[in-house]
Simulated assay, not measured.
Amino acid sequence: MVEDRIREVFARAGAEGSLHAIPVGGEPDCDVVTIGRRAARDTVAAGEGAAGDEVAVGADGPVVIASIFKVLLVLEFARQVAAGQLDPRERVRVTAADRLGGWGTAGCADDVELSLRDLALFAISVSDNSAADLLLAHVGLDTVRLLTEELRLERTRIVGGPRDVLQSMLSEVGARDETEFALRYPVIPEDRKRRMGVLDPSRTNASTPRDITRLLRLIWCDEAGPSQACAQVRELMARQVFRHRLVSGFPDEVAVAAKTGTLPGLHMEAGVVRYPDGSCYAVSVFARTRELAASRPAVDAAIGTAARIAVDFLRRRGR
């Protein structure tokens, strides 16, 4: 069975994985994929199994979404721009106090000034935590929460932005800043690390693989907001620079628009793969490893392999 093959892929990489994959048709016309989806879901119990229009492995179990949260954030930003509530050209200064570490402006040594729309670009393309945090200050956390309700992402829970996640990690190890965290974290016992709130779906931003593919389908079908807002999110996700997870599983001619997420022991990516014939498939993959390492190339490759197995199954069923 396809589900067993997917589980074996993760087991060989030393991880446990969950996945959901569905066809979404060619953007932005996705009407054909709505036929039979409810019936297919009813035949797949407890998030396990494969039906004609989905592959599900633990698809309804709660998962930490980490930086995949930024897709919701940027979608809400694009919706507010389309509604005339925000000016995408508004300038924002990223100062030392705003830096959260990591890629993009989050790791800059000096102050940087850029527009709101470039904050959105950096948040998605390089997963810039500072850019996402400043963008969230303009968009509003409550509006992002309301967005999940509007889109009927019933298992998605948003508790905060990147700064909230960082502060949670600092407080749990008793560190005042990232430098002190880097010194304290390695010597913390493994069992204590595993109990950290950022790794617990009940205490941090969380969803399910099925909810995330629903979000992607709505974006690709222009059903998550105004068409220009959905198009902007699709375009930004296509510009993500990280190519080591979903992209690794597909041939060069297959385009992938996606967003990664990473925390110690958690590796994930959600995106849409588009074949030259125009067919598209939304895939969300979440892996949890036994070792709490942030870098696990074998697990990253397993995410791509599992996604390819699921999509190949859907393509065979669709013929």
Rank of each mutant, 00 (worst) to 15 (best):
V2F: 09
V2L: 12
E3N: 03
R7D: 11
R7M: 05
E8A: 15
V9I: 15
P23I: 03
E27A: 15
V32R: 14
T34I: 11
R37T: 13
A40N: 12
T43F: 14
A51G: 13
G58Y: 01
I65P: 00
S67K: 00
F69W: 13
F69E: 09
K70H: 07
A82W: 06
A83Y: 07
A83S: 11
Q85M: 12
E90D: 13
R91I: 08
R99H: 08
G102N: 05
T105E: 06
G107K: 01
C108P: 11
D111Y: 08
E113T: 15
S115G: 05
L116K: 03
L116V: 07
R117E: 15
D118K: 13
L121H: 15
V126L: 03
L135T: 05
D142H: 12
V144T: 01
L146K: 15
L146E: 14
L153N: 03
E154P: 07
P162E: 14
Q167G: 09
Q167W: 04
S168F: 06
E172H: 02
V173Q: 05
G174W: 10
E178D: 12
A182E: 11
L183M: 12
P186V: 02
P186H: 09
V187D: 11
I188S: 01
R192V: 14
K193R: 13
L199Q: 04
S202P: 05
S202W: 09
T204D: 05
P209M: 01
I212T: 12
T213N: 05
L215W: 05
L216M: 09
R217W: 07
D222M: 06
P226G: 03
P226F: 03
S227Q: 09
Q232N: 13
V233T: 00
E235I: 08
E235P: 02
Q240T: 14
Q240S: 13
F242A: 15
F242Y: 15
H244G: 14
L246W: 03
G249M: 08
V254C: 04
A257V: 09
T260L: 02
T262C: 08
G265H: 05
G265I: 04
S279M: 09
C280A: 13
S284N: 06
A287Q: 02
T289H: 04
A293W: 11
A293M: 11
D300M: 11
A301R: 13
I303H: 04
R315K: 05
R316F: 11
